[in-house]
Amino acid sequence: MKEQFIDLLEYNSHFNQLLIKIYLENKDSFNEKMTLLLNHILNAQQIWNSRIIIEESFGVWQINPDEKLSEINQSNFENSIKILNERNLDEIIAYRNSKGDDFQNSILEILFHFINHSTYHRGQIAMLMKQVGLEPINTDYIFYKRK
């Protein structure tokens, strides 16, 4: 199971990094919503990691400096791999969401959630890219595996 999650985390990081590269090369074409969603993808993974490893978390919708995006993506990946290697996937994490409500989920559920969450928002960005005349990237998992 851990090997499968390592693969999914690598997939997630790869396409986040590609999206960051495209953003940095086309900042003038990216609108506010696209920029917000890109930052939100990175922020969400950092927040979920921080709930597990008990560190200070980002704001859900904070805008990060452009020059830090790749570093944040890499740090997110490394922290997620560390969690995967050092913690039990069945371990239950108690946390408070951004609205202040208390919840509990397993590490497995959390990892699956933020990977799926990232995929969802990358799809939204792809649609928005097309609307502004940019060629969207195909971030489907199967295309990643075909490389």
Rank of each mutant, 00 (worst) to 15 (best):
F15H: 12
H113R: 03
E109K: 12
Q4R: 08
L42F: 09
E78S: 14
H113A: 03
I107M: 08
M34N: 11
Q45P: 03
H113F: 07
I92T: 12
D102N: 14
I20D: 05
L108T: 02
K99F: 05
L111H: 09
I142Q: 07
L38M: 08
P65N: 12
Q4K: 11
N105G: 05
E55D: 14
F15R: 00
K68I: 02
S70N: 09
F114I: 07
K130G: 00
N88L: 13
D140C: 04
Q46L: 08
Q46F: 14
Q131I: 01
Y120P: 04
N43D: 10
T35S: 12
N85S: 11
L24I: 06
I115T: 12
S80Q: 10
S75G: 02
N26S: 09
D102S: 14
I54N: 15
L37I: 11
N73M: 09
I137T: 08
M129Q: 15
L128E: 06
A94I: 09
Q104M: 04
S57P: 05
E91T: 13
L37E: 03
Y95R: 10
L37P: 07
H40N: 10
W61I: 01
F5W: 13
I47W: 13
I41D: 00
T119W: 01
K147H: 11
Q74T: 12
T35D: 11
Q104E: 14
I47Y: 14
I137W: 03
M127V: 15
Y120V: 02
Q131E: 14
K21M: 02
G59Y: 02
I52V: 15
F114K: 06
G123K: 00
D7R: 15
H121V: 00
K99N: 08
M34D: 06
K2R: 13
E86H: 06
L9E: 09
G123S: 08
D28N: 11
F143D: 02
I110M: 15
